[in-house]
């Protein structure tokens, strides 16, 4: 079954300045896909289209088999959650508890069930002890995990991470990455939008965007070593692969080291 089907989608904010052109992309249920691209490649616009915050100029989007339209958008938003870049600009509640409750209140979930869900998902992302805390008492990583709990509590099955780790310090980033791995384990469909290779590596498939078009698409392993594609889209190869590439340029022969570098690049 497909979680998301994007068919021939284009979008522009201003006339004659297309941000996305002829995007075709299918994401299966339980798959983890990375959308990789430089600043301004249109990757954040794509996430806003999927969740219906923007309406495609042409083409269509299906979520869980339902076409995204004016009528279905509210149902679809129950199925798709999104974690944005800036932790401060998506924290709606005055406390962690209120913030996780926000989406549930919108879905008109009865109070008793809300209390139950808040506890379940706060525990899941490890913020249970902060339920009564205000946002300014939390670190960036903690705020992002509260956002994840808020989405999970709505029983969404597709989660988009729109550069959700880019404003965090290494510790906060690792916290969020751990939570992502856990979500994959539970069979959620995950879309990460990033320009960091270490993050892309965790996913099953990578879609490289450049200037609003899909430049290349393939399994993480093939894209990671595709030097030309990465260079074309202002991205950086992982270090072990860079070293491997340089060694191959110089006709380096030690197969053991070459195999090792390849292996290491897959578990950075």
């Amino acid at each position: 079954m497909n979680s998301i089907e994007i068919k021939n989608v284009s979008y522009q904010y201003q006339p004659n300045k297309p941000v996305l052109q002829e995007i075709n992309l299918t994401i299966k249920k339980g798959e983890w896909v990375t959308i990789l691209g430089h600043n301004g490649s249109g990757k954040s616009t794509l996430s806003k289209l999927i969740i219906g915050l923007l309406k495609p100029k042409t083409g269509e989007i299906n979520v869980n088999g339902i076409p995204l339209t004016q009528e279905t958008v509210y149902d679809i938003r129950q199925k798709v959650g999104i974690v944005f870049q800036n932790p401060d600009n998506q924290f709606v509640g005055v406390t962690v508890r209120d913030d996780i409750a926000f989406g549930l209140e919108n879905l008109q979930i009865p109070r008793e069930e809300m209390i139950e869900r808040i506890e379940t998902y706060a525990r899941k992302v490890n913020v249970l002890e902060y339920l009564n805390k205000e946002p300014h008492a939390l670190s960036g990583g903690q705020k992002q995990r509260v956002a994840i709990a808020g989405i999970l509590a709505m029983h969404t099955d597709i989660i988009i991470f729109d550069e959700a780790t880019s404003m965090l310090d290494p510790k906060g980033r690792n916290m969020v990455l751990e939570t992502m791995k856990q979500l994959r384990h539970e069979g959620k469909t995950i879309i990460t939008i990033t320009h960091t290779m270490n993050e892309a590596l965790l996913s099953d498939r990578i879609v490289v965007l450049k200037d609003g078009r899909i430049l290349k698409e393939g399994s993480s392993q093939t894209i990671l070593k595709d030097k030309t594609t990465l260079e074309k889209s202002n991205l950086e190869m992982l270090l072990p692969l860079k070293v491997l590439y340089d060694l191959e340029q110089e006709n380096y022969t030690n197969k053991r080291i070459k195999d090792l570098l390849w292996e290491l690049s897959l578990n950075v």
Binding site: I51, L53, Y74, R77, Q78, G81, I82, N89
Partner: peptide, 15 residues
Amino acid sequence: NAMEARSFVPGRNRT
């Protein structure tokens, strides 16, 4: 955007 993405619709009933 964040509020809308979490199913907030102005004027609609909320628990």
